[in-house]
């Protein structure tokens, strides 16, 4: 990953500067940063002085506020009363709304239309999945699920932009100050993690692979896998987890899973848009290898979700994978 300062000295950045009129094309010299540094140090001193002044003023204000004001007391009383009234109104409104809802399971409900009938009657023949929910979200509504997976990818990328530490010295110190207050190498949690982590991994893989046969699927199985990895990190630390899951593995697994997922779905879209037959055999419902592309899509979604969960944990804890 490239830092901004690395980028600044490349050829393309000089072209960009030249195009934007910020810098001379060929006269760029990195020594020119010296003056900028002096200016920066001057600015820092000024801001420090201003911070000190602000702190003093804030302290004075806090000391003034130690005696509770009269109108503050009144305001707190009024605030509590208004909050209680608003809560009661909201509860009343929601209860009235609930009492007007149609009864559960009634045949005349607006939710019981031809769409539900189609899913229940033809779902297993058309998708090959015994679990109708998986067949529904990965086949009939595959576009929606693709958007959800992209949302996960974008969310992880945004957290990376905000929290990822790319600098050399800060990265070292992030290792050193990781679990600064926390007890390290706790023998009890390590013994239990030795037993639990394989069980959690096997269960997560089972949930992903059995997504089209029983309740479960890519999202829930991926969440279980991610939780197993988080348990491994909190028991053994980052050095041991990085032996099987580091930044490189994360990049490859996540991007390739998303690409394969999109290619699987675009096959569906292409075939459907042109009115062509689906040539992927659905197999006999109930077998592990059946239901066409749903099994593959489940595996890709599971990889994506597991990577995202672990990346969130690692980024918020250490600022890097």
């Amino acid at each position: 990953m490239k830092k901004r300062s690395d980028y600044r000295s490349t050829f393309y950045s000089r072209i960009e500067n030249f195009v934007n009129g910020r810098d001379e094309f060929l006269l760029y010299r990195p020594q020119g940063d010296l003056e900028a540094k002096q200016l920066e140090s001057l600015e820092e001193e000024l801001t420090e002085a201003a911070d000190l002044l602000e702190k003093k003023e804030a302290q004075q204000r806090v000391q003034d506020m130690t005696e509770p004001l009269d109108f503050l007391k009144k305001f707190h009383k009024l605030y509590g009363m208004i909050a209680a009234i608003i809560c009661a109104m909201l509860m009343l409104l929601l209860l009235v709304t609930v009492s007007w809802l149609p009864p559960f399971g009634h045949p005349d409900n607006p939710a019981d239309n031809e769409v539900i009938k189609r899913y229940i009657e033809n779902g297993q023949q058309e998708t090959g999945a015994v679990n109708i929910v998986t067949g529904l979200i990965l086949n009939y509504r595959g576009f929606d699920t693709m958007g959800e997976t992209h949302v996960l990818f974008i969310a992880a990328s945004c957290v990376m932009i905000l929290l990822l530490i790319a600098e050399g010295e800060e990265k070292k110190s992030s290792y050193a100050f990781d679990r600064y207050m926390e007890p390290k190498n706790d023998i009890i949690i390590q013994k239990v993690a030795n037993f639990l982590v394989p069980v959690v991994f096997v269960f997560g893989i089972y949930v992903i692979l059995n997504g089209h046969l029983s309740p479960g699927g890519g999202f829930s199985g991926g969440a279980i896998l991610g939780a197993g990895m988080i348990l491994h990190v909190s028991a053994f630390g980052f050095k041991k987890t990085e032996k099987f899951f580091n930044e490189h593995v994360y990049k490859v697994a996540k991007v390739s899973a998303l690409c394969f997922y999109v290619s699987c779905l675009s096959y569906y879209f292409y075939m459907g848009a042109h009115g062509l037959d689906n040539h992927i055999p659905l197999g006999t419902p109930g077998n592990i290898i059946s239901s066409g592309l749903i099994l593959l899509i489940n595996i890709f979604v599971g990889t994506e979700v597991a990577c995202t969960m672990y990346a969130f944990y690692a980024l918020f804890r250490k600022g890097g994978l």
Binding site: E182, P183, I188, I189, V192, F195, L196, S234
Partner: peptide
């Protein structure tokens, strides 16, 4: 039983060290 006792153990060690 495994997980809840372990999690309370970890929280307690955290509390004790902080």
């Amino acid at each position: 039983w495994l997980t809840s006792s372990i999690s309370s153990h970890v929280i307690m060690r955290m509390e004790h060290s902080i």
